[in-house]
Measured scan of single mutants.
Amino acid sequence: YKIYPYDSLIVTNSISVKLPKDVDRTRLERHLSPEEFQEVFGMSIEEFDRLALWKRNDLKKKALLF
């Protein structure tokens, strides 16, 4: 996945969300650098992957990456 800054990946309720063209809309968190991922989620990507799907989705919603 290509890395993008968190600010360019957050999704708000506005209709005209302009995400970069090559971003996987269903896995926005994968486009964060490991350092920024840790900062946003408070855990590593590996720890995040071990969580239940509902928990990952809940965290993504709170981080505006859903």
Rank of each mutant, 00 (worst) to 15 (best):
D24V: 06
V23Q: 02
P20W: 04
I10E: 02
T12F: 15
Y1H: 12
V11A: 08
L32S: 00
P34R: 14
E46P: 08
L28M: 05
P34L: 11
L64R: 13
L53G: 09
R27S: 09
Y6L: 05
D22T: 04
K2C: 07
Q38Y: 14
F66N: 06
E35D: 12
M43E: 01
L64A: 09
D49G: 08
R25W: 08
E47G: 06
I15M: 14
D58Y: 13
V17D: 15
I3Q: 08
L59R: 03
R30H: 04
D7L: 15
I10F: 04
E39P: 03
L51V: 05
T12P: 09
Y6A: 02
L64G: 13
I3Y: 09
L28R: 05
F48L: 02
R27W: 03
S44A: 13
F48C: 00
L53E: 13
L64N: 14
Q38C: 11
D24E: 06
L59N: 02
K60Y: 01
K55Q: 14
R56C: 03
E36T: 06
L65A: 01
K2Y: 06
R25C: 10
K18F: 09
V40Y: 06
D7C: 15
P5K: 06
I3D: 03
R56T: 03
F37C: 03
F66Q: 07
L19R: 05
G42M: 11
L28Q: 01
W54E: 14
S33F: 03
W54Q: 11
T12D: 11
L9E: 00
I3K: 07
R30M: 07
E35V: 13
F66P: 05
K18G: 15
F48Q: 00
I3M: 06
I15C: 15
L28H: 01
L65D: 01
E47D: 12
E47F: 08
K60E: 01
N57E: 10
D49R: 05
G42L: 11
E35K: 14
R25V: 14
S8L: 15
R50N: 10
K2F: 06
L53A: 11
E46C: 10
I3E: 06
K61M: 09
K61Q: 09
I3S: 06
T12W: 15
E29T: 00
F37I: 02
K61L: 08
P5Y: 03
L59D: 01
M43F: 05
L19T: 06
H31K: 01
V17L: 09
Y4C: 03
N13Y: 06
L59F: 05
Y4V: 04
